[in-house]
Nucleic acid binder design. Structure first.
Lengths: 209, 209, 209, 209
DNA sequence: AACTAACCGAGACGGTACGTCTCGTCTTATG
DNA sequence: CATAAGACGAGACGTACCGTCTCGGTTAGTT
């Protein structure tokens, strides 16, 4: 992406090496792209400790004020970076609530374990000190729970799931578990563990009388 | 010279007053106490962003090296501060697994909501960038889950809870929910919500056939 | 926004007042000046022991990195401070080598005695532990000796001074005496002593046969 | 020296490794020796920058208070270290003032160049900030000049040197030159240079009429 | 023989300064 | 007027020493 940026301007005069300058009184998409790319790369390579506005500017060959102009805080940049990744967590519809929930939970954990979690971890951490990030995180989490609640709603429609269950709340319970494992770097969850959790919740912990 | 030494301490009690000096080749409990107190106060007042070794040293009227001597990292100090608060989360034993779990989850959330959570939030945030903090957090979380697992073990002993349930894993599921709410500042959980979650897990989400 | 920028500077003069910020991608003369001034004042007030980068930064209301950016070492800053004082040691040209040398030596000692020596003392001291300072001092001393050698060169041109004398070496001998007195705080040299030294060297210590 | 210290106690029980403890209510010569030795070694190896009370204590395996008990300041320790070295600068008596002065100046420079100067440099540097060191240095320098003045006094007695010359002052002039070279690390003075200086002063710089 | 007094090492204490890092703001020069 | 560049004040980081203090142990003289 970042390489493409000068491609359209090659013929216009002599082009000073590889420098990216203003394109006038408007936001420069090449800069935005370079900054987001740099931010993402830094996060994936060095994690949150390596992530600083300074480092992003350096790597993106951008001026710090350019970053501050468009992203008011570290958290805003983090969120933008996160939104770029399509998160690939599915809302399966196999017709079997056990399978659906196992696939959902396993998918979420797997996505995070395979590299997708680093940035989200950073956002959660940032949200503990930055109120703006916190609000964004709240909104994001809520909408995700609602979206994923569809799994249970389908189960309810099929008469497979109790009608008095709040789908979003239950999804929150499952994804909380994934959060916990993400935040404690214990994402190596076996299929058995996932199935045990799903089974416990679906069938109930209590002995059937 | 030797006479002067004890002269200032004749009145046994209230003495510390101004300056706190060494008590010889051994750790000074007064310093440790002052440092932990200062650290706690700073955390409660300004949260994680205000928490720096510099600030703690200043407030505790201690030298920075004194802190570094005893706590190798910011995270170590954070954990020590957290350990000082007796966390008051109970392991209730009412004989009814529903009540026990509700009291446990409600107790944890209540404790965090009423001020006890701020420091733990900070530790989780810190653990996202500091490997040492992460390790400490892992160990802590694990041991807590095992401890609280006793609630379910008692249920199993009573024949109330399925024997194939892993107590620690189930507790982890419940406390994950509390973590989630702590980290998203949504600890205002109603008793109904807690009961719904407990009920869902105890009785199962599935419709009984 | 853009309008606000110049608003505070409408009245051209007296403006600096409180805060001194960047003037763009280039060295800020106001900062440089403030730092050198602060350094000089600290040296004159508290001498070398009071002179620390920390103290200079504090007094100049500058950040430490700003100092380290422009002066790689304490010694470099010291030398810059010394160079600011025009040192007022003359190269007199009375036509009489005795008078010229007396005025030179007396002038040097007098300049140091009347306040100008404190900083140079500090530089010499610093050079004993800092190789960079040492090198700077060597270069400075050498060039001064060569400059002042002109006194003897004129004497040689007049046929008053032996042609086989190395002017710089002789000047070094005289200024060494001043160094010695500076470093041992014995700058209260009487005119008689100066004349005795000059007389000894000019006329020779040996009895004329 | 330091090695000998346990020699007398070998047979008395099992001797805890190599520890040097108190010998009762009196100064322990072994400790003093070990401290001076350590101080000297550090100075010769790392120069003034490496010389700290901390380092000396570490190397001498002594407690810091033991050092502070006997030497009130860094300078005092430095001076003691310097006094241990017999300085080997001669007061030659060849009967020829030229030879005597050349041997004196050459001897002083040579002694310093061959390792003896490092400590004296340190003392001079220290004296620029420590008044106690300064005073000690003044006294030392004065007495040395007076002692070495004997060279010129003998010349005066022989009728070889003008009677109106102050011997100490002249010696100060010569040794100032050595100081200068010591402090600027330019002790590689050739015999020719020494002879030129001596010749200039003995015979006079002025052309004989 | 017991006691005292001073010494010993060790090392903790409250501090200061070090030199490096990042922060978020600012101004320049370039296009 | 947006950009890359980079200087600025601020202040935290972790380290090295400073000079003071207390400790527990050792040993020489004195009782």
């Amino acid at each position: 992406m970042a390489m493409k940026k000068s491609e359209g301007r090659v013929t216009i005069e002599k082009q000073v090496e590889d420098r990216r300058t203003s394109i006038g009184s408007q936001r420069n998409p090449a800069s935005e792209e370079a900054i987001l790319k740099a931010a993402q790369d830094i996060l994936l390579e060095g994690g949150l400790p390596a992530f600083s506005i300074e480092a992003v500017a350096r790597r993106a060959k951008a001026g710090k004020p350019t970053i501050y102009r468009w992203w008011p805080s570290k958290a805003a940049l983090l969120l933008d970076v996160y939104h770029r990744q399509k998160d690939g967590v599915p809302h399966p519809d196999t017709g079997d609530i056990r399978k659906d929930l196992s696939l959902f939970l396993g998918g979420l954990i797997g996505f995070w374990r395979d590299g997708g979690g680093a940035i989200f971890r950073s956002i959660i951490a940032e949200a503990q000190s930055d109120p703006a990030a916190l609000q964004a995180l709240q909104a994001y989490a809520l909408s995700r729970c609602r979206q994923s609640g569809v799994i249970l709603e389908r189960g309810q429609a099929r008469g497979e799931v109790r009608a008095d269950i709040d789908p979003a709340l239950l999804i929150e319970l499952f994804s909380s578990f994934a959060w916990n494992r993400l935040l404690t770097s214990r994402l190596d969850v076996s299929d058995e563990e996932i199935e045990q959790i799903v089974s416990a919740v679906v069938d109930g912990v209590a002995v059937r009388k």
